[in-house]
Amino acid sequence: MNEPISSVCITVNGVEHRCEVPTRLSLVDFLRETVRLTGTHVGCEHGICGACSVILDGDPVRSCLMFAVQADGHSITTVEGLANADGSMSVLQDSFCETHGLQCGYCTPGMLVATHSLLKTNPNPTAGEIRDAISGNLCRCTGYQQIVEAVQLAARRVAAGNGNR
């Protein structure tokens, strides 16, 4: 049986991509291998680890649990799309550096996507709400505490008009 092919038009970080892809190509493989945005990480490939989280039409989802063809006509934001327009790190990203919210960095794109989405709807989350928001993302380095601190720091910085650490 020949590899079935599908045409897709997917907007990634504001840029429209029209191409033909294998129908069974997962969204995360599309982002990494077709669009060449390798910030989104492939972890478990069956929806457990959360490293592949991206934002689909405004909501965080696991990109290993979607086929690229399902994203046809939809908009994706990856971790690359969370940075400031000039390429500098967002307050949240910078806060992860500041509090040592990462070590190996494998889970970081998923953590950033999950907590970015949290802060958008809840700018001043409690530690419990932060833990709930990252409950679908595994980290084997930090023990999660510094990640929670990073999100709290980012929330404080944004509330204070941002900028200063």
């Binding site: 929806g47 959360g50 989280s53 689909l56 909501d59 965080p60 989802v61 696991r62 649990l65 979607m66 999950a114 989405s117 709930d132 928001a133 409950s135 679908g136």
Partner: peptide, 9 residues
């Protein structure tokens, strides 16, 4: 049920 990312889909 699951987590934010799985409930969104």
């Amino acid at each position: 049920v699951g987590h934010v990312q799985t409930k969104n889909r």
